[in-house]
Design a protein around this nucleic acid. Structure first.
Lengths: 358, 358
DNA sequence: CTGAAAGCGCTTACAG
DNA sequence: CTGAAAGCGCTTACAG
């Protein structure tokens, strides 16, 4: 920390306690202190000596210097996760899962936003230097192939989380196609035929996969593709609202919409309400990704719940266990479930094919 | 990173490039490389030599080891922010502001959740060791006075963000009292008299300050305290919904509610809707803290916008500029503004005192 | 059972 | 203008 050092009295910050201080205090060598503290199994030490060391540690309030230890061991015990946007509640779950998995393995997970980082590999490297973290999880935003290569060359193990990228063979994702398919099937079972897709931004890999799942399920249900029923929207409330306005202009308008993203679905719900379109009576809305808020929108959103925590956890695991250059191309096969709430129903004048049961 | 080292071929991870390699390649001393890279102003070096160093750095793909540098300089360039819960959208804004301020000063901000950390100072210290970060921002959750002292003793500069604590003299908060007061005044101007408070959890410092602001404003408006109009609720949708159910049972029921928290307000909105109480016709709801989602709830939530990004930024600034043990007790005097949307209106059968203008 | 020594990769006074 | 040396605080083979 840089303060105005010139005015700070030298004595204010009492000199840092080091192994050497502890060793002197316990009348042993530094190496013994170190071994006691790291629980070196090869160390045979009299119990009495061990206690002497331990109480010296306590008395002096000794805390090992993490930098020195890392430099020596080339191991930091820290993992970093970069994501584009803390405002997207989807990431909260991923972080939770990743933090827990990291903790379980004795690592700390620190999260940062890549918008600050600048999103380029150079920016990440600047931030991280070398040796600052043992691994890097990159979620949700495109990193150029060049940037990717830079990370590889720098020798910082990394893994893409919840997205794939051309030229990268290290990622874990969820089965977005299947999730989108399940949502469409739900709407089809309810009796809907004009099912629209409020898709994600065209650049997003998750958006592409969800759209593919939507199209495949529509085809399987016997509905021909209709481009007026698909609209790209940012993963934001504004994006969702604007997309919804566009979709409502289709002629005839859709009776159901699959939103690719929870936050966009909130926007869509709001836009429908503003347009005087009643949900679910006139329009059903289902979203991908459940959220603690989904049960409390008006009306409560039907959602396809995906194992986001498991995704975060799996990312940590793979990052920690796979050799840094090995190919990792995993589609996490966790449970995907449809959580039916109040935003979906049979279309007006129709009862569902299947009484909506599931 | 620990892999199965026994099987990993030694040659896979090409030996790390160090200053020494660069020095050799550029035919200069390591110290020159170091000085060129840190832009040491005291270094007088021929331009040609500097270029030779720089191109050696490029050719070898040299990235300085952050641990070694930190150990030498006792400066990491990293700050950490711990918060209780990534799911609360309020924190997204604080993080954004803090990250930007950190970046502007050449620091990286890494965020972690204190639920994983365990919430105790010991846990933080375990995570951080010593020397891993230059400072620590602690948001939103109680840390015992003991824990606090432990951090001080360990010599890790820290600052409480958005909360105060008994025994701590280092914090920045927002002016929650004034925010709550403004919300109440808005409702009073609309003509409301039975104004309830969906307060935060009793343990939360922000909740206490908002409640105090609510009570003071009610008193100023000439309404006697009525305990049936105040209910404590967690800062969660479920908490807000449950609290709202309780409030609606008051006799006579309130015509307006001030929710202490945005996420709780979402729950309250949902509970009102479920109970068949129309917002804003029969019940006005105003919340503290605006959010990107607030404009898209049904109906859109009137909110008191507080400078959350500025709070995050100010926290970073104070952490970086105040001596580690100095007293810092700042109530950030940024702009607080009422954002009137559709969830507040004059009570039924009444027009506002002031035509709702503001 | 314990100690002395080397070295992780840097930066920075200091000497030339 | 550039180099040699010390040292940040640890851990870990190695020697006794």
């Amino acid at each position: 920390m840089r303060h105005d050092d010139s005015s700070a009295p030298e004595t204010t910050r009492s000199r840092r306690v080091t192994v050497t201080d502890v060793a002197r205090h316990a009348a042993v060598d530094r190496s013994v202190v170190s071994r006691v503290l790291t629980n070196d199994p090869r160390l045979k030490v009299r119990e009495e000596t061990r206690q002497r060391v331990l109480s010296a540690v306590r008395e002096l309030g000794y805390i090992p210097n993490a930098m020195a230890r890392s430099l020596r061991t080339s191991h930091t015990g820290t993992l970093a996760l970069f994501l584009p946007d803390f405002a997207n509640p989807v990431y909260a779950e991923i972080i939770t899962g990743a933090e827990a998995a990291a903790a379980a393995r004795g690592y700390v997970l620190m999260t940062g936003s890549s918008s600050t980082a600048g999103g380029t590999a150079e920016a990440y490297l600047k931030l991280l230097g070398q040796g600052r973290v043992d691994g890097l999880l990159l979620a949700g935003e495109a990193l150029s192939a060049d940037a990717q290569r830079a990370l590889s060359v720098a020798g910082i193990p990394h893994l893409l989380l919840n997205r794939r990228m051309r030229g990268s063979h290290r990622y874990v994702t969820l089965d977005d196609e299947r999730a989108a398919g399940m949502a469409v099937e739900h709407l089809v079972e309810l009796g809907h035929e004009r099912i629209a897709h409020l898709a994600g931004p065209s650049g997003a890999d998750t958006a592409r996969r969800r759209k593919a799942g939507y199209l495949a399920a529509m085809k399987a249900a016997g509905f021909p593709p209709d481009s007026s029923l698909v609209v790209a929207a940012d993963y934001t409330p504004v994006g969702g609202a604007e997309g919804m306005v566009t979709l409502l202009r289709a002629d005839p308008p859709p009776t159901a919409v699959l939103a690719a993203n929870f936050v966009a679905a909130i926007g869509a719900l709001s836009a429908a309400w503003s347009a005087g379109v009643s949900v679910p009576d006139e329009l059903s809305i289902v979203t991908i990704h459940d959220s603690p808020l989904a049960g409390f929108t008006v009306p409560a959103l039907t959602a396809v719940r995906m194992p986001l925590q498991a995704l975060g956890a799996r990312g940590v695991e793979l990052l920690l266990t796979s050799p840094p250059d090995a190919e990792v191309t995993e589609i996490l096969s966790g449970p995907i479930e449809l959580v039916v709430r109040s935003s979906t129903a049979a279309p007006a004048g129709r009862t569902s094919r299947n009484a909506g049961s599931r």
